[in-house]
Design a protein around this nucleic acid. Sequence first.
RNA 1: CGAGAUGUAGCGCAGUUGGUAGCGCACUACGUUCGGGACGUAGGGGUCGCGUGUUCGAGUCACGUCAUCUCGACCA
Length: 520
Amino acid sequence: MRFDTCDNPKFIAGHNNRDKIIKNKNTMAKEVTKRSDNYSQWYDNLVVKADLAERSAVRGCMVIKPYGYAIWEKMQDVLDKMFKDTGHQNAYFPLFIPKSFLSREAEHVEGFAKECAVVTHHRLMADPNGNGVVVDPSAKLEEELIVRPTSETIIWNTYKNWVTSWRDLPILCNQWANVVRWEMRTRLFLRTAEFLWQEGHTAHATRQEAEEETMKMVNVYADFARNYMAVPVVVGHKSPNERFAGALDTMTIEALMQDGKALQAGTSHFLGQNFAKAFDVMFTNKEGKQEYVWATSWGVSTRLMGALIMAHGDDNGLVLPPKLAPIQVVMVPITGKDEAVNNAILDKMDSFKKELEAKGISVKIDSRDTLRPGFKFAEWELKGVPVRLAMGGRDLENGTVELARRDTCEKSSHQQEGIADVIAALLDDIQSNIYAKALKFRDESIRKVDTWEEFKEEITKGGFLLCHWDGTPETEEKIKEETKATIRCIPVDSAVCEEEGTCIYSGKPSSRRVLFAISY
RNA sequence: CGAGAUGUAGCGCAGUUGGUAGCGCACUACGUUCGGGACGUAGGGGUCGCGUGUUCGAGUCACGUCAUCUCGACCA
């Protein structure tokens, strides 16, 4: 485990009342847990304190607050464009699925049955005993409805009517939706009973085309994670044990969190003809023969929010990559008694704001006059705003401003002239810096391990272990039982993986290494 | 569903051998402040999770119940 702290002593130095600062530091220490003390608590704490989300009155369900939702919306905007650029269209399918649909595909039902919410009645009535309302027994549904845990079944039942000829293919649809999976234990963003996601569902005439689609979309996710979230990911295939229920192959992007645990951040499934057969979706091919359609599905969820928080956050709060930050620059005026000076500062800030907005940079001027600057600094750091600009009476005289970057907490003084260009460059630099930092951490956390003894020791330290595996589900299961570690993926892309060796657990021969970790 | 813990103001907590509820933060008003989480003064806010019992009297004791959290099993 490793944490980079950002406890800059400059924040304290020079203040004329050290006792007060220390007192306040203590107060904060109580409020915000440090990562090294308790990583889970730090995470939960941060999600709430940074105003991203909170627990709701409904068991296992969260309220995503405006600031958190704004980040999700930015993610949606980028992903939606990427989907459309790769030829997909949005559509919407029902929240409810007839219960019988779920059982059409045997593995699928087995995978999801345990976590489905079921609608049994369509009406309530006043309780005859006077205790509020009860279900109206006469309103029992003929066929019960499942609240979708994922939409393959309802969608493939629909696609049946959309496809008759090879000319109708491919179908490339995506939907933005909520789904419900009744989990035993929940954590904000990482695992909630209801969550938001997108699910792409495509239908193809050939196996090859569907396999290419599966690969294409996992690469879209990897691209998004790396270039927008600034989170490095490993792309690979899931082992049969970890595969999506009903898929022939599941591809995944795996990210590493700062506590050394892995997080599955997105998946893309090659479904073969399983759902086409279950829902009887056939087409006439160019040769005039009847054939089952080939399918894929792929999704990312609000879990990405969790990945974002855990990949970059520090003991001062959230650290947002500029490309996804709802507010990229916050301006804090340092005001005093002189109203003329205060107004001049705010006027300057307004002009900076216009310049920045012309460059497509989002800016907030924090002109709340009942709060002191120090409080605002701390608050915007907690919320992860990439760049802060502060300006007071002295700056006004000198023609300068102070810039602070969230990723390193470094402060610097700049001339007002050309400040928009400086900030634009700084945002780019922050984006690449936090990626570089996360990449360095991730790369340093990948180790090759060749003996079982070493494996048991190393896995407790967190990170990814590259090991030989004999390819059997039994061995994977044993390793999981003894160490809690699972195969996160069989990496597609790594030259280091492809070498002969012997399975770490069984000693049987293996032709390539796979990636193990303890995961969320 | 197995093991453990906790429910007292919006949040975090204290509350002694049972005697009628308090602290910090937050909140409201006014004033002084404002370059790293300000200070003063004055305020407001509670079915002590719920129920039953013991008692003259229950936040406190007993039994029951509900909820939440942590750790397991399950999962994007």
